[in-house]
Amino acid sequence: MSDTLLQIKELKVKYGGIEAVRGIDLDVHAGEIVTLIGANGAGKSSTLRTISGLVKPAEGNIIFDGEDITGKDPTQIVSKGLMMVPEGRRIFPNLTVIENLKIGAYLRKDDLEKDIEMVYGYFPRLKERSWQEGGTLSGGEQQMLAVGRALMGRPKLLMMDEPSLGLAPIVVQEIFKIIRRINEAGTTVLLIEQNANMALHVADRAYVLENGKIRMEGTGKELLEDEKVRAAYLGSTSGSN
């Protein structure tokens, strides 16, 4: 557990003149599920997009697996084993389920069949739909496809941006169960969520992000019991705001 897989130091992200992330420090150890919770506009997605290279940081360092990946291209970052499940799923609507999965493994060509079987193991429903176009899937299935697609890259660290967004509670529970299974199979997970209740239950450790800064950190359990967190993020049992 002491092995640091991802380390973020003093990260700042700016869009034009607006500072979305104002200097955060964050660690993810190998084998953990770490979650980053916060309200809309707290800077969660910006942090994640910066880690995956889609946005260049203004300041700070990102170290992944002992290597500085600050400001590198997404292609290089993905090839190091850092895959993202983007917000709002963003599957490829005109490609079949299988083609979607194959794109996830674009940077390596070996053993695709085995990995596709692995993904189907997690999501048997995708197997039934393997020749269907991505756009014809239901929301939950699309989210499964997005997760499966990222798994095809055999990530060391899987980053998920709001996997519960716009899904029915039952489907959300199913997805979170699978996130835990993926983690148990050896993949480290960095999870970004507004659904704080679900996220804190599944996470080993958690960070609370507010206005671009980390306000609190601790184990999932600690934060679940914290008065301030309860008041701000867990006001209702459903947890979403």
Binding site: P74, T75, V78, S79, M83, M84, P86, I91, L107, G153
Partner: peptide, 12 residues
């Protein structure tokens, strides 16, 4: 289909 998603999958 989706430039951002393609980029996130490592497609240059």
């Amino acid at each position: 289909d989706d430039e951002i998603a393609a980029e996130a999958m490592g497609v240059s």
